[in-house]
């Protein structure tokens, strides 16, 4: 059972430095072993939309948070977000955009697509750690996620 719960966070990040820093921040907050990393957009899509991603209890269905960088090789973050929010099996997973810059255009587009949070990575490492901590605290501990096997969340759009 514990093994099943292992992957709760998908981190999509192409920059190895940022990745390491983020991982370190998670480690400091004891969230490290629940993270799966995708290094580009394609990898992320493959991880999320694998063969039986919409089956109950599948890897995707166990995801409780996706941290998404916007500027990614191959398939960019916005594209991934679009796919996530378009599919009824994944639209309930909270997505937090974690990016370098505050671009009005990106902000508007991601919110329009239904992003749950938009975080700008601070350069200052302490602030960065704080931000990652807060994201983990909020989305994994405080926030009540949509129950995975509730029919409203998953099958309603299929019937419609």
């Amino acid at each position: 059972m514990l093994k099943d719960e292992l992957v709760e966070i998908l981190l999509v990040e192409d920059n190895p430095n940022d990745l390491e820093l983020t991982m370190r921040a998670f480690k400091k907050n004891n969230l490290c072993n629940q993270i799966h990393v995708a290094h580009d957009g394609e990898e992320a899509i493959q991880f999320i939309f694998h063969k039986d991603f919409d089956m109950p209890g599948s890897q995707t269905q166990r995801l409780r948070l996706i941290l998404l960088d916007l500027k990614l090789p191959k398939i960019d973050g916005i594209e991934i977000l679009k796919k996530l929010k378009a599919s009824s099996s994944t639209s309930h997973i909270p997505v937090v955009v974690l990016t370098s810059s505050r671009e009005d255009k990106d902000l508007m587009e991601t919110y329009k697509l239904g992003v749950n949070s938009y975080i700008i990575k601070p350069v200052d490492f302490h602030k960065f750690t704080e931000a990652v901590n807060e994201i983990g605290m909020y989305w994994l501990l405080l926030n009540q996620n949509c129950p995975r096997n509730m029919p409203d969340c998953r099958s309603f759009p299929k019937q419609g």
Partner: peptide, 21 residues
């Protein structure tokens, strides 16, 4: 400016972050 804000700031974050580490 988009690429400046994205690409120029990532190294800074690395410098700062790893110095911290």
């Amino acid at each position: 400016s988009y690429s400046v804000s994205h690409d120029l700031r990532a190294p800074l974050r690395a410098i700062n972050g790893f110095s911290n580490i």
